[in-house]
């Protein structure tokens, strides 16, 4: 019962933050509500037994990435969003019904997946009665054994991203 109550509290926070992101006009308010979404998602990950992912979510996402966003918003002195004069009338009229239909389709598909069998699709079965599931030890074991090559490739990706960011943001002489 308690997990269900906690899930609903954090899910409400998540959805509220996501809707607030859409409603707010100023980018800094949108960024801060995205941090709320990420924080409550980290708590939902804890409910799912994903300790390491929850920690990384807080440190990398809510910490590093969002600090980068807030820093850029401050740097560019971004103001309130401007309205576009020649907005598409079709999009204005059909946007909300289209969104509702899309969401309904997604919910329908997902609710027909709910009876999914408990088949393991590779990877070790770590949860054996105890509460060791998703802890750093198990993740590290998997990451440095089965997924060693993708892990090394990501380091190249990060290196390229850093160099690309430096080159792109450099002031031209």
């Amino acid at each position: 019962m308690l997990p269900l109550i906690l899930f609903f509290i954090f899910a409400a926070l998540c959805v509220g933050g996501a809707i607030n992101l859409l409603v707010q006009k100023h980018p800094i308010n949108s960024a801060l509500s995205l941090i709320v979404v990420m924080g409550s998602l980290a708590l939902i990950y804890l409910l799912l037994g994903a300790e390491f992912v929850a920690a990384v979510q807080v440190i990398v996402y809510a910490g590093a990435v969002m600090v980068l966003f807030v820093f850029v918003i401050m740097l560019l002195n971004a103001g309130v969003e401007e309205r576009t004069e020649h907005a598409s009338r079709v999009a204005m009229v059909l946007g909300v019904p289209g969104l509702i239909i899309g969401l309904g389709l997604a919910v329908w598909v997902v609710s027909h997946l709910a009876g999914l069998d408990r088949i393991a699709i590779g990877g070790p079965m770590v949860m054996n009665g105890s509460d060791v599931f998703g802890n750093p030890q198990a993740i590290g074991h998997l990451l440095f054994r089965n997924f060693l090559l993708p892990f090394e490739v990501t380091s190249v990706l990060i290196l390229i991203a850093i160099m690309g960011a430096v080159v792109l943001a450099r002031r031209e002489e």
Binding site: V56, I121, M125, G134, I139
Partner: peptide
């Protein structure tokens, strides 16, 4: 599914998102 593969995928998605944020903000 009691499989840790999903956590690894999340880890890689986060790495790609961080790289994307760095390049995109630049």
């Amino acid at each position: 599914l009691k499989s840790l593969d999903g956590h690894i995928f999340v880890f890689f998605v986060m790495v790609v998102a961080a790289a994307e944020a760095a390049v995109g903000l630049a």
